[in-house]
Structures are given as structure tokens and as C-alpha cells.
């Protein structure tokens, strides 16, 4: 099995508060890994550390290693811009820019200096198709993204992340702000994308993890309790905490 990211002894702090405690596991490439656990267990902090989104908080600090392609992305000199090109992210609430659909998807390419109209066009179309939103918006790509429904906006955000050709896509509870039908569409998109991309999704919804995850990591109070193949975790967890969570003892 191949691994995209190797997490070694990762600890994270906000001020004095330890949010993540010695997380160590490898994230398999070209598969969906779901991060589950009760709220406040550090799931979001964990994936936001992978693309160093937490750097903007002055009191945030992380130790340990996250190895991408043999390099520790947590090291000081690691270039953030190229990290974020390789590790894309989709957020909890759809956050398109108040620009046209086309401009939204082309944004990442344009800031990385791609100006060729043909390349831009092709990437925009293929990204929209991969995110299964092309059919609904193809008639007018100049439409302001705010005019789209929540589910369409979220798929547009997936397309926007795909356009810069990342290897890993991080999703932070991407369906928590949208309706069940749109959720199903996004889950289908993610399953298809997992053939070509490494997908890490945070979810508080066990059913969702059961539907789409190949691997599940269970977090509790900042610690990784259990990691393994999805079926195994769901049917015969080794740890009592995992079992309690799955059976709804706490949520």
C-alpha cells in the first residue's frame, strides 16, 4: 500500500492548550480516509494542520512531522504556496468568491501564473465535470457563483480545488451545511475522485463515513484512538472508546 502523508508524533497547541496529542499514522494514497470523533476532539485542527491553515493564528504551534514526498511540511522553510497547491482544501461552509463561476475555478491557476486561455478553459471545464457541477452551470459560466444553490456552491469549491491539480484534497465537514440530496451528490463525487486523489474528510456523521470511507481514523480528546480499514473499524473496533462512540454512547 502506498501512503501520501506520514504523520509522525504530531502535537498541536493553541496557546497553552494541547489540541492534538502525539498523532502518528499514515494516510493511504488514492483512497478516502475519514476522520471521525466527537466535537472538540481535534479533527478540524488536524486537517487544518496538514495544509498549515492554522498558521494564521498567532498562538498556534505544531510539533512533530507531517511528511509529504519525503519532506516535512511543518518545517519552517517549507513553501506554503506550493504546499497548498499540492494539498487542496474544501471548507465546512461553501465559500466561493463573489465572482463568476469561471473566475472561481480559474482563480488558482491565474494566481500561479497560467494565462493561456486554452489551458484555462480546458482546466475549468474538466474540473467542473469532475466535481459533477458542469451540467448545471454550462449554459452560463459568467453567472455569479453566489447565485448557485448551497450544494452547487460546494461542488464549485471542489472544482476550484481540483483546478490546481492537487495530490491530496482535505475536506472539513463539507456536507454539514447542505441538504441531503446535495450531500449524496458530493459523496458520489468524492468516491469517484478517490481513484485519482488522496482524500481526507472530517465528518461527524458515522453513516457518511460508512458510505464513502476506505479508512477511518477515530479521534478522541486530541488523541488518535484507532485507525484502520473502514469495515473493520465499523464492525469490530479494537478499542472500547471507538465502540462507545459508534454505538452512540456519546457524540
Amino acid at each position: 500500500m502506498e501512503f501520501s502523508l506520514k504523520i509522525e508524533n504530531l502535537c498541536a497547541y493553541f496557546g497553552e492548550k494541547k489540541i492534538l496529542d502525539s498523532i502518528t499514522f499514515d494516510i493511504p494514497s488514492k483512497a478516502v480516509t475519514a476522520i471521525v470523533g466527537p466535537s472538540g476532539c481535534g479533527k478540524s485542527t488536524f486537517i487544518r494542520t496538514i495544509n498549515r491553515m492554522n498558521d494564521r493564528f498567532e498562538n498556534f504551534r505544531a510539533s512533530g512531522k507531517i511528511i509529504l514526498d519525503g519532506e516535512n511540511i511543518l518545517s519552517k522553510g517549507y513553501p506554503l504556496e506550493s504546499l497548498r497547491m499540492r494539498v487542496g482544501m474544501v471548507f465546512q461552509r461553501p465559500n466561493p468568491f463573489p465572482k463568476s463561476i469561471y473566475e472561481n475555478v480559474a482563480f488558482g491557476l491565474k494566481i500561479h501564473g497560467i494565462k493561456n486561455k486554452k489551458v484555462l478553459d480546458e482546466t475549468v471545464y474538466s474540473s467542473l465535470k469532475a466535481a459533477a457541477v458542469y451540467e448545471q452551470v454550462k449554459d452560463d459560466l459568467s453567472l455569479n457563483a453566489y447565485k448557485l444553490s448551497g450544494g452547487q456552491q460546494q461542488r464549485l469549491c471542489i472544482a476550484r480545488a481540483l483546478a490546481v491539480k492537487p495530490e491530496v484534497i482535505l475536506l472539513d465537514e463539507p456536507t454539514s451545511a447542505i441538504d441531503p440530496i446535495a450531500t449524496k451528490q458530493i459523496e458520489e463525487v468524492l468516491e469517484r475522485l478517490s481513484k485519482d486523489y488522496t482524500i481526507v474528510i472530517v465528518t461527524h456523521n458515522i453513516q457518511q463515513a460508512a458510505r464513502i470511507a476506505d479508512y477511518i481514523a477515530f479521534f478522541y480528546l486530541g488523541k488518535l484512538i484507532e485507525f484502520g480499514k473502514a469495515e473493520k473499524i465499523l464492525t469490530s473496533p479494537k478499542e472500547k472508546l471507538t465502540n462507545d462512540y459508534l454505538t452512540g454512547v456519546y457524540s
Partner: peptide, 27 residues
């Protein structure tokens, strides 16, 4: 300025100045 949009641009690898000129000022 809405932090979600700033983060959206950061997650695509935009620098502070790119966020300023291409997201904030147009917005």
C-alpha cells in the same frame, strides 16, 4: 473581510498580496 473567502484563497496557494488584490479589493 469575510474570513472564509480569505481562507478559500489561501487554500489555493494565494499569497497575502494576491488575496488583497484579487479577492479583497474586487470584493
Amino acid at each position: 473581510f469575510p474570513i472564509e473567502q480569505v481562507e478559500g484563497a489561501q487554500a489555493l496557494g494565494a499569497t497575502n498580496m494576491e488575496i488583497l488584490w484579487k479577492v479583497m479589493i474586487p470584493g
